[in-house]
């Protein structure tokens, strides 16, 4: 399973991960401003009824995003 990079979109509910880098630079600007910094820990806290968007915990608050956006957050 270790072939492709794991992203925030691969997290299961309650699972944690540490941000390593971003695959979409434009998108990363917004994510950085919202506190998704490389090296910080995130946790998937819930998913919307159709599995998308998702809600993650970062910097001690809840941030929602779509799966495709979460997929640009690479985890360590």
């Amino acid at each position: 399973m270790a072939k492709a990079t794991r992203t925030a979109a691969d997290l299961k509910i309650g699972e944690r991960g540490v941000i390593c880098c971003f695959s979409d630079q434009e998108m990363s600007l917004k994510l950085l401003e919202m506190g998704c910094l490389p090296g910080s820990e995130i946790e998937l806290s819930s998913k919307a009824p159709f599995g998308d968007p998702i809600c993650i915990k970062v910097l001690g608050y809840s941030l929602s995003m779509r799966l495709e956006e979460a997929a640009t957050i690479n985890l360590m």
């Binding site: 998108m27 917004k30 919202m34 968007p53 809600c55 941030l63 929602s64 995003m65 956006e69």
Partner: peptide, 11 residues
């Protein structure tokens, strides 16, 4: 153009 949905959930 890309569409964003990065949004804070207030308590």
């Amino acid at each position: 153009e890309k569409s964003y949905f990065i949004m804070e959930f207030p308590t």
